[in-house]
């Protein structure tokens, strides 16, 4: 098995505009997703939702600035760390990952074990 990060990029404004109900639906969708990953033979190793980019602080060469590292319409809003057989399996799982206001990116975790 290999490890992948599923990075969830969504338009933050969309959640703000959609209101409490959208949050509720997203929460339900994510708990459904957690079950689906197991059914498909994958495993969630970790993951979390992030506070919006308005809460972000960036640091580059000791200079601290307010805001995210890069200003984009769709920002990183959460992530999962999963285990999957191969990229096709990871993509199959990532397709189920809820991201109603954007999409997800699949990145392999670097093997730093050496050897």
């Amino acid at each position: 098995m290999a490890q992948y990060a599923i990075l969830i990029y969504e338009a933050e404004s969309a959640y703000a505009d959609a209101g409490q109900e959208a949050w509720q639906q997203a929460a339900e969708a994510h708990s459904r997703f957690a079950g689906q990953v197991g059914e498909r033979g994958g495993k969630i190793l970790g993951g979390d939702a992030l506070e919006p980019t308005s809460t972000a602080t960036s640091i580059r060469s000791d200079i601290v600035t307010d805001g995210p590292f890069a200003e984009t319409k769709e920002a990183l809003g959460g992530f999962y760390l999963i285990e999957a057989r191969d990229l096709d399996h990871a993509i199959e799982i990532a397709k189920l990952c809820p991201a109603p206001f954007g999409g997800v990116e699949v990145r392999p975790i670097m093997d730093t074990s050496g050897g």
Partner: peptide
């Protein structure tokens, strides 16, 4: 290699 693209023929669904 890094993203683990499998060396195989896709399953019938894909």
């Amino acid at each position: 290699a890094a993203a683990r693209i499998a060396y195989r023929v896709p399953e019938s669904a894909e």
